[in-house]
Design a protein around this nucleic acid. Structure first.
Lengths: 115, 115
DNA sequence: TATCTATATTGATGAATATCGATATACAAT
DNA sequence: ATTGTATATCGATATTCATCAATATAGATA
């Protein structure tokens, strides 16, 4: 019996019988995907993303994003910062106003993970 | 000008100019999707899901899921409970062992949200 | 320059959560 | 019945996080 065959046995047989689970994804990869998911796993932030998705050019001014959420202005600003730090939106100043734009590639990234 | 036309103006024009954001998704819907996402937004739980996805029949015994994570047995049990409560996996007892199985519809649910 | 408005940051607080050791429970085997 | 093993729950702790009021900053306008 070769060493490889022995290793196969160790991988395929367990105390409970055959059919053990595969190897988990890398811890580092898991942490980075979890960070991205955590940025999205909040009702207020999902509402913000949904508004941006509907908006023309998938961009909107903060002044139009705050009131519909029913949260204070600092809280909405905080949530937008979380989304920005996660790379899900970009921030841009236009005169007095701050505009936020969806980053589609990051959303593709999320969707792709569940395929 | 009709009342509807006036409302249209209020929806399309804002202090910063045209192109405001759309209406956010329902707060209740946002909360339920956020709950599902929070269940997944953890590195250990992503690793658990990845192991189940690779396993034959997408099911595995806890005894094969604990060691690879490098976490204590109670902690892994906790994470599996979170996944179970979120409907992402089902728990079943087979003799001395507990087996967990992926629930594909919930993963479809997640994937569908980002389309 | 002085003021007004839009947005961001700070500081504080309460709630949620990831983790572990200790213990309980459930099932098997002797 | 007793013993052993697999898994779940309990209790405690440290950390993270959502939220707001107060304040700071930055840009526009007068």
């Amino acid at each position: 019996m070769s060493a490889n065959a022995a290793m196969l046995v160790l991988e395929d047989i367990s105390a409970c019988g055959p059919n053990p689970a595969g190897s988990p994804i890398d811890r580092t990869a898991a942490e980075s995907m979890a960070s991205l998911l955590k940025a999205v796993a909040d009702p207020a932030r999902l509402q913000l993303l949904s508004m941006l998705k509907q908006a023309a050019n998938q961009e909107a001014c903060v002044c139009d994003l705050t009131a519909p959420l029913g949260l204070s202005q600092p809280t909405v600003s905080h949530h937008l910062k979380v989304l920005t730090d996660a790379g899900l939106v970009t921030r841009e100043r236009r005169g007095s106003w701050a505009w936020f734009t969806l980053v589609p590639t990051q959303l593709e990234n999320l969707k792709g993970f569940f395929e």
